[in-house]
């Protein structure tokens, strides 16, 4: 179903998981960030995911404000999600990275933008930033993404899918196909980002799941005989779990997964706040530890300077004593 280009793509090699893999990766990243703490807070991957989902919404609003095409918005949001597989909010808070991520997405999708214009646009919504703040996290973000800057957006295949469907069912189904396609696009460029579907299914599975969710009868007819039962099942599972949110994947009760279903923004904000408070406490301790380490290092440096000064003084005196003309008069 997917061409060989996809098999070798970074998306498939680095960002395609089973729910269990995805969930344990997130837990591992969080644990790693809490290790240096003497008294780590009861922060779980569930909390950090709520924070992430909250900032996904913020980033999405930011993209609308910037008026970027859906490719840029999709890439920015995907960068945020991919990055936080390896990064914990305790180490670097997502809110500090939203603008740099948007800028990077514009660079990879559009080939750059004017920085001063970018800063002005951010200021319009009360976000003040500087060129330095925008660019200093760039390497960290790129390295955190394992240098995978290509995002294969499922909706890019929609026009092609529409053509094959119209060819299959003829012009009399034209309106029906267009309607399904339009609604599928809405989901793929919208609520889909609130879920982890992009990490668990291939772009074409997502695309057909989005279409099937809109018109089961029609897409069932199309898939019959074309897709293997296994693939068709996978597509329906994706639609049930992530488009409708009516079931979970059998035998999978992972807490660190963003399942489907409607997102209640109010609830999300309050849940994210609970997590954010703990993140804040943990960061405070980390910063103190970092500060102590820096001070110690500075202290060692000062001692070293003092020691060298003494040594130089002694050497000077020794030189003077050794001077054949004797000490200064």
């Amino acid at each position: 179903m997917d061409n060989s280009g996809y098999i070798l793509s970074t998306q498939n090699r680095h960002y395609s998981f089973t729910p269990t893999e995805l969930s344990s990766l997130r837990k591992h990243t969080l644990e790693l960030s809490l290790t240096p703490l003497a008294s780590p807070p009861a922060l779980t991957a569930h909390h950090t995911l709520k924070i992430l989902t909250h900032y996904t919404l913020t980033l999405s609003k930011l993209c609308h404000h910037f008026g970027v095409p859906s490719a840029v918005r999709g890439t920015a949001i995907t960068i945020l999600h991919r990055l936080y597989l390896h990064l914990s909010p305790v180490t670097t808070h997502p809110k500090t990275l939203l603008l740099p991520i948007l800028l990077l997405a514009m660079k990879t999708e559009l080939g750059g933008t004017s920085i001063s214009q970018f800063i002005r646009t951010a200021e319009e919504v009360g976000l003040s930033t500087t060129k330095k703040e925008l660019q200093s996290p760039e390497l960290m973000i790129a390295a955190g993404l394992r240098w995978s800057l290509t995002v294969r957006h499922p909706w890019r295949g929609l026009d092609g899918a529409m053509v094959v469907l119209i060819r299959e069912f003829g012009d009399q189904e034209d309106a029906r196909i267009r309607k399904a396609s339009q609604k599928a696009r809405q989901w793929l460029t919208g609520d889909c980002f609130m879920t982890d579907a992009g990490f668990l299914y291939t772009p074409s599975q997502l695309l057909w799941a989005a279409l099937w969710a809109q018109d089961q009868e029609l897409i069932d007819r199309y898939m019959k005989g074309r897709f293997s039962d296994e693939v068709a099942e996978k597509i329906k599972e994706c639609a049930d779990v992530f488009v409708f949110g009516t079931r979970k994947i059998a035998g999978c009760e992972e807490e660190a997964i963003r399942w489907g279903g409607a997102v209640n923004e109010k609830e999300l904000v309050s849940e994210a706040k609970v997590g954010d408070r703990m993140v804040h406490l943990a960061r405070k301790e980390l910063d103190q530890g970092r500060k102590r380490a820096e001070e110690e290092a500075l202290g060692r440096e000062a001692e070293e300077r003092e020691r060298r000064k003494k040594k130089r003084k002694m050497e000077m005196e020794k030189m003077k004593a050794d001077d054949v003309f004797g000490p200064a008069l």
Partner: peptide
């Protein structure tokens, strides 16, 4: 250059 340092898993992988 004012560059944000790599940390944790990202630094280890790098």
């Amino acid at each position: 250059a004012p560059v944000m340092l790599l940390t944790g898993d990202i630094a280890r992988f790098n």
